[in-house]
């Protein structure tokens, strides 16, 4: 074999190797080039919620029940391990025992979420539209986020559950952390979270949900009129769930 032949042979060999390694990737790249780019979240939206604690009553659990069914939140019958995406809390001022209020507590979808800051694998992330979510495909279950959340909004999946109450939404296998997603799957379809829907339909109509970036939306009008407060605003996390009347 002459020197020239050898060179051509080597070049061809290299081309073959590169071709076989890269070709599948290139085909895929072409496949995704035709992918539609619309239909994703945009920073024009900023989802938020207002809860009127004057309307919410202690014996109504429509929101928590609706959430449990919609999102397959596990209930094991042991308060230590039950999942909670939204829970009813009764608060009584220490100075005035008679003046107690009931309210739902859920993930506040903070503007500066400490859970996202501490997540070692960036499984917790903020979507373009401000919803804080967990990528359960990536979560390693270290539970640092549960330590960092000041609202106790996150729960860990201690056991596997067998059944889906709503097959359209995935349940969680054991070993990951879960929390409220503002029903992101419904928002993407143009609907409102199931807790708000349930509250408006059969509850006390105490919840308002909407786009904080839209000056004409119901929620922005409501905030202008009633100036509701976020929880623990002193921590500087800028929560996007507001409470009127506490």
């Amino acid at each position: 074999m002459s020197e020239l032949d050898r060179r051509i042979f080597l070049k061809l060999g290299a081309a073959a190797v590169i071709g076989t390694t890269l070709a599948p990737g290139i085909t895929l790249f072409q496949a995704f080039a035709q992918d539609e780019t619309e239909g994703r979240t945009s920073s024009k939206d900023r989802w938020g919620m207002v809860i009127d604690t004057n309307k919410c009553t202690a014996d109504c659990t429509e929101c928590t029940a609706a959430c449990r069914t919609e999102n397959n939140v596990p209930l094991f019958g042991d308060p230590r391990y039950d999942g909670h995406w939204i829970r009813k809390v009764t608060v009584t001022p220490k100075t005035d025992g008679a003046h107690s209020r009931s309210l739902p507590l859920l993930c506040n979808h903070c503007e500066h979420p400490p859970c996202q800051h501490v997540c070692p694998v960036a499984a917790t992330f903020t979507r373009e539209d401000g919803i804080v979510m967990i990528d359960k495909h990536r979560c390693i279950g270290c539970r640092y986020c549960m330590i960092a959340c000041p609202y106790k909004a996150r729960t860990f999946v201690f056991k596997n559950t067998e059944k889906w109450s709503n097959p359209d939404v995935p349940k969680r296998g054991k070993g990951v952390v879960e929390k409220c997603t503002f029903c992101a799957h419904r928002i993407d379809k143009g609907q409102i979270p199931s807790c708000v829907e349930a509250c408006n339909k059969s509850g006390e109509k105490a919840m308002v949900f909407g786009n904080l970036n839209d000056p004409n939306s119901e929620i922005v009008q409501y905030i202008r009129e009633h100036a509701p407060k976020g929880l623990r605003e002193d921590l500087g996390l800028e929560p996007k769930v507001f409470y009127k009347g506490i």
Binding site: V89, T90, K152, R232
Partner: peptide
Amino acid sequence: IFPGMNVTSD
């Protein structure tokens, strides 16, 4: 979560 309040829940 609620400074100055007594809190109960399930």
